[in-house]
């Protein structure tokens, strides 16, 4: 166990030494991996931020129920009592046609139009906040309410959010595909780096094979190197994105103040960052493993 640990420690040391022995090429590879990673990483972070907004809205849907223009006070009360017994409804609010007209008149640029109307064209309406439900059920509720005789039209106010949400899911699929392609690129970059290393260390590998080094001993420093390179590349990508978010947040502060909201972009979560590092280390390891398997067997002592 002690020997096993010390062998791994030595392999790690040799991998680090190799990394610092060729600082320029190591740095370049890491930056290349970092830039490749920053693309899906950046899109992923943006999607995450957008989704935080849209899914919040989409999961608590809002309906506007418009009554027929000729609806009487009795009709309104009828709808009101039916809504009170209806499932899935968190809360609802009645907006009479008079209040609606007042609201319209208060909107500054429509003031003129509203004042010049001969009679109130607006219907009575209910605004319904639903509980968190699935999109299918939302559609059911809409259909049921629409069939009531007093109802002219039912509108899902949060349809936009659902569409954005669906679009974001599509975006996530695109990120996944991008990540797969760039993960392959990472494997290839590491594969090539390790190939060159194996070839330049040909003499050393041949000698230690002759004096009894096992294949796993010979492989180990290369595998560590690949894993470190993958992880460092991912860290570089993470850093690029973090810097980008910081820069955007600084200008967002001004924008958010103008709209009197507190809106800012979130960084990649701790959990996501950790899995990014582990995943890229695994990919680097895999690239090194493939490369070593390919080229080590070619070096047989004569």
């Amino acid at each position: 166990m002690k020997i096993w640990l010390s062998q791994h420690w030595q392999a790690l040391n040799r991998a680090l030494k190799q990394l610092t022995n060729t600082p320029l090429s190591s740095l370049l590879s890491i930056i290349v991996i970092g830039i490749a990673f920053s693309l899906p990483l950046g899109i992923y972070t943006m999607l995450g931020n957008l989704q935080a907004i849209s899914s919040d809205t989409a999961s608590t849907p809002q309906l506007s129920v418009f009554l027929k223009l000729k609806a009487s006070q009795a009709d309104i009360e009828n709808v009101n009592s039916q809504l009170e017994e209806f499932p899935y409804i968190a809360s609802f609010q009645f907006i009479s046609k008079e209040i609606a007209l007042q609201q319209l008149q208060q909107e500054s640029n429509l003031n003129e139009v509203a004042n010049n109307l001969p009679k109130n064209p607006l219907p009575d309406a209910f605004i319904i906040n639903l509980q968190q439900i699935l999109p299918d059920e939302l559609e059911n509720i809409r259909a049921v309410i629409k069939k009531w005789p007093e109802i002219e039209h039912v509108q899902v106010d949060t349809d936009w959010a659902r569409r954005v949400d669906a679009l974001l899911r599509l975006g996530q699929l695109a990120v996944l595909m991008l990540a797969v392609v760039l993960g392959l690129a990472l494997i290839i970059v590491v594969f090539n780096t390790i190939r060159l290393q194996v070839l330049t260390k040909r003499d050393e590998i041949e000698v230690i094979k002759l004096i009894g080094a096992t294949d796993s001993f010979i492989r180990r420093p290369f595998l560590y190197f690949g894993a470190i390179q993958g992880m460092a590349g991912a860290a570089a990508g993470w850093l690029l994105i973090a810097l980008g978010i910081q820069a955007i947040n600084e200008s967002l502060v001004e924008l958010a103040q103008l709209y009197e909201t507190d809106f800012h972009l979130n960084y990649l979560s701790f959990y996501d960052s950790l899995s990014l590092l582990i995943f890229s280390a695994l990919l680097g390891w895999l690239g090194a493993r493939l490369s070593v398997a390919q080229y080590l067997s070619q070096i047989e002592p004569e």
Partner: peptide, 10 residues
């Protein structure tokens, strides 16, 4: 040192 290194000597 090499032969000892491959044997994992301290």
């Amino acid at each position: 040192m090499l032969p000892l290194q491959i044997r994992g000597f301290q």
